[in-house]
Computed example of a mutant assay.
Amino acid sequence: MVIHLGLFLGFQLLGEIIARVFALPLPGPVIGMVLLAVLLLIRPTIGKKIEGTAATVLSYLSLLFVPAGVGIVQYLDQMSEIGLPLAAALTGSTILAIGAGALTFKYVGRAMGQPDETPQ
């Protein structure tokens, strides 16, 4: 498990290095995630090996939201001023992200030759 976590963090570090060296507008972890996805496409056996570790990390993902909640409570007075625009931005970006994800899955499924199961 430690080696797998090292792999995840190594790709995040590699992404950070690439983002800073080339002054890219993308966050380093996103670049690292894309590189890891490319590796998993090239070597699917690695995906089978890290599957358990990835599932464990995902099961504790909710802990990452605790600092965000503390930040909101700490700046509650400012939230009254910017709360409505912030809520609108969060709602809109969530809807767009869900739509983009759904379309991506649909087109990847088509590209892989799977039948389209979208209700008509």
Rank of each mutant, 00 (worst) to 15 (best):
I18A: 13
S59V: 01
V108R: 01
E51S: 14
L76W: 15
I31T: 10
F22E: 09
G28N: 09
G6H: 04
V2E: 14
I31L: 15
V57C: 02
S93R: 09
A37P: 03
V2A: 15
A19C: 10
I31V: 15
L64N: 06
F11Y: 13
A100F: 08
E117S: 08
Q120F: 08
E51T: 02
L103K: 02
G6N: 08
S93M: 12
A87Y: 04
R110H: 12
V2Q: 15
G109P: 01
S80Q: 05
I72W: 08
L24F: 09
G99Q: 03
K106F: 11
V38A: 13
T94W: 05
Q120M: 10
L14I: 08
M33L: 15
A54K: 04
L58W: 07
V38N: 00
L61E: 11
Y60R: 05
I46M: 04
A100C: 08
V73T: 10
G99H: 06
L96C: 07
L13K: 02
L63E: 05
G101M: 07
M1H: 11
V73A: 14
L64I: 02
S59W: 00
I98E: 04
I17H: 12
P85G: 03
T45P: 00
L64E: 06
A111R: 11
L13T: 09
E51Q: 12
G83C: 04
M33F: 15
P67H: 02
L103E: 02
G99M: 11
A88E: 10
A68H: 11
T53N: 02
M79F: 14
I46S: 00
L103F: 05
V108A: 11
D77A: 14
G28Q: 06
V66A: 12
V34R: 01
F65C: 08
G28R: 07
L41Y: 05
K49D: 13
R43K: 15
V38G: 00
L103R: 01
E117Y: 11
F105E: 11
F65W: 15
E16K: 13
P85E: 03
P85A: 04
S93I: 04
P115F: 04
G15T: 07
Q12W: 10
V70M: 06
L64M: 12
L63Q: 04
L96N: 04
T45Y: 00
T45A: 13
L14C: 09
A102T: 12
A100I: 14
L9S: 09
L7W: 10
I3H: 12
Q78S: 09
S59C: 02
L63F: 15
G47M: 06
A88K: 13
L26H: 13
